[in-house]
Amino acid sequence: MESRNTQLAVGLFVIIGVLALLFLGLQAANTNVATAGETYRLYAKFDNIGGLKERSPVKVGGVVVGRVSKITLDGDYYEPLVEMVISKQYNEFSDTTSVSILTSGLLGEQYIGLNPGFIDDTVQMLEDGDRIYDTKSALVLEDLIGQFLFSQGND
């Protein structure tokens, strides 16, 4: 009898543990978005990536579709090459798609914004390993100030 109660208590204990894990997984974490299911990779080359990091989100109109998986320096001129992992769910980007590095809020972290390009008979769809050529780099505060001063001087 006693051992039965013990078993019951232990069973409940394990169930509580599983429930806690479910709560963490479903309520606290983003299980459904990007990188969880099947993915494909895209590349983009920037002049300057600013504060972009590995695992930064890739968004389309604010919706997360993937993550930055790797940042390397590429080519003879050492330009930053960003590898992105995009969910297979969103595999209909044309090769006229452009990417830019954006900032969420004034002090927020940086992320990649994907702007889907137009689609007609002449364009092809991006596939695993393709590169996006239309890129806009991160805004760097010093450059901004420099441009501002320069344009003031011209007035």
């Binding site: 606290a28 983003n30 969880a36 989100p57 997360v64």
Partner: peptide
């Protein structure tokens, strides 16, 4: 929270 916490 969900946007920043990742399961894996």
């Amino acid at each position: 929270m969900q946007a920043n916490v990742e399961w894996g």
